Simulated scan of single mutants.
Amino acid sequence: MKTTILRAVVALSIAAAAVMAPTAANAYPDQTVAVASPSVVGPGGKTTFTSSRPVFQNDEDVLISITGINANGITLASVAPQTNTSLRSKAVSGSLRVPLTFPQNASGRYDVTFTGARSGVVLRGSVTVSGAPSSPAKGGLAVTGFDAASTTGIWLAGAGLVVAGSAVVAGAAVRRRRRRTISV
């Protein structure tokens, strides 16, 4: 009986840890990602890639490489590059803030790599171009993961598992004491 209760407590603890692990893992942002805002634009639209914190050296040149359909037509600010690997920007105070304008014939997913010329730091991001040529899409970042309201149930379930586990452990301790008292 003791081993059954102990196994139940261990199983409940492992289940609670498995449920809570993704929440803890998402607590820290990925420092190797450049975020596009908006993440979906129309052909001819504009997006701006940023970093969550300074990751490059102060005022470092940042080399930009873009992969996607008609990527050679992408412009940085108002200057059209001759190739998609010749784009450069500056990391102002170490932070990334790079606006890109897509050509009217852009479509599909574009993968963008930002590399610090001195530090060698690499950030990656992507943007999707879809729809008919129009003005840039309004919006912001895609909603991913969980927010505080949607994880309330998980937290309550985890707390319930902890309370149930504590009750099982307390009950086992009481039974052990009673057995010792009766045997003596």
Rank of each mutant, 00 (worst) to 15 (best):
M1C: 07
M1R: 06
K2Y: 15
T4I: 04
R7C: 06
R7F: 08
V9M: 09
L12P: 00
S13F: 15
I14S: 03
A15S: 12
A18V: 15
A18N: 06
T23M: 15
A25C: 07
Y28P: 00
V33T: 13
V33D: 01
V40T: 15
V40F: 11
V40I: 14
V41P: 04
G42C: 05
P43K: 05
P43F: 14
G45H: 05
K46H: 04
K46Q: 13
T48E: 08
S51I: 01
S51Y: 02
S52C: 06
V55S: 10
F56L: 02
F56S: 00
Q57D: 11
V62S: 01
I66V: 15
I66G: 03
I66A: 04
G68W: 14
N70A: 14
A71Y: 09
G73Q: 04
G73Y: 07
G73R: 02
I74N: 06
A77T: 04
A80Q: 10
P81I: 13
P81A: 15
Q82I: 15
T83G: 14
T85R: 14
T85D: 15
L87S: 06
R88F: 07
S89F: 04
K90E: 03
V92R: 02
S93P: 00
S95T: 07
L96K: 00
R97Y: 01
P99F: 02
L100V: 03
T101P: 04
F102A: 04
F102Q: 10
F102N: 04
P103T: 01
Q104F: 07
Q104Y: 06
S107D: 09
S107G: 14
G108R: 08
R109Y: 10
R109S: 08
Y110L: 07
T113H: 05
T113K: 14
T115L: 09
T115W: 01
S119C: 03
G120Y: 13
V122A: 08
L123F: 13
R124V: 12
T128M: 09
G131D: 07
G131M: 09
P133D: 12
P133E: 15
S134V: 05
S134N: 13
P136M: 08
P136N: 13
A137N: 14
A137K: 06
K138T: 12
K138A: 12
G139V: 13
G140H: 10
L141Q: 10
L141N: 03
A142N: 09
A142F: 03
V143H: 06
V143C: 00
G145W: 14
F146P: 02
F146V: 13
A148R: 05
S150W: 14
S150Q: 15
G153I: 13
G153Y: 10
I154N: 12
I154R: 05
W155I: 04
W155G: 12
L156Q: 10
V162M: 09
V162P: 01
V162S: 10
V163F: 11
V163T: 08
G165R: 01
S166T: 10
G171S: 15
A172R: 11
A173H: 04
V174E: 01
V174Y: 12
R175C: 05
R176C: 01
R179Q: 08
I182G: 02
I182T: 11
